[in-house]
Simulated assay, not measured.
Amino acid sequence: MLIIGAGLSGIGAAWHLQREREWTYAVLEARDRPGGTWDLFRYPGVRSDSDMVTLSYAFQPWRGKKSMADGDSIRRYIEDTAREHGIDQHVRYGCKVTAAEWSWEDNLWLVRTEQGGRSGTWTCSFLYICAGYYDYEQGHQPNFEGVEAFGGRFVHPQFWPDDLDVTGERVVVIGSGATAITLVPALAKTAAHVTMLQRSPTYLSSQPDVDKAADALRRMLPARLAHGLVRARNVLSSQLTYWLSRRYPEQTKRHLRGAILRYLPDAAYVDRHFAPRYQPWDQRLCVVTNGDFFRDVAAGRASVVTDRIARFVEHGIALESGDEIHADVVVSATGLSLVPLGA
Rank of each mutant, 00 (worst) to 15 (best):
A318W: 01
G10Q: 09
W122Q: 10
V46S: 00
Q251V: 11
Q141G: 05
P222A: 13
R42L: 05
F150C: 10
D80T: 12
S9K: 07
V297F: 03
G35L: 02
H90T: 14
Y128L: 15
D211V: 06
A188S: 12
D49F: 02
G71W: 02
D215Q: 15
W15G: 05
V288T: 10
W104A: 14
R254G: 13
L338F: 13
N290L: 01
Y128I: 14
D209C: 06
S125F: 03
Y263C: 08
S206R: 03
T167G: 13
F41M: 14
H90A: 15
G45T: 09
V155E: 09
Q158M: 15
S9T: 15
H315K: 14
C130M: 10
I74F: 06
R219A: 15
D266L: 05
S119W: 05
L187M: 12
F41G: 05
A268P: 03
Q115Y: 04
R47S: 11
V287D: 00
R33P: 05
G116F: 09
V171W: 00
S50N: 07
L244E: 12
Y263K: 07
D51V: 04
D209I: 02
T289I: 14
G12N: 07
F294T: 02
S332W: 04
L17K: 01
S205T: 12
Y25V: 05
Y203V: 00
K253G: 11
S337M: 05
V339D: 05
R233V: 10
A310E: 15
P265R: 09
A216E: 11
F274D: 01
D328K: 04
F274R: 00
V46H: 01
L187S: 04
R21L: 14
L225Y: 09
L164A: 03
S67T: 15
G132F: 07
R247M: 13
Y269A: 04
R118H: 08
A192N: 10
V230Q: 05
R246A: 03
R301M: 08
R254A: 13
D135A: 06
S67A: 15
D271G: 07
T113M: 07
G175L: 03
V331Q: 01
D51N: 14
R33Y: 08
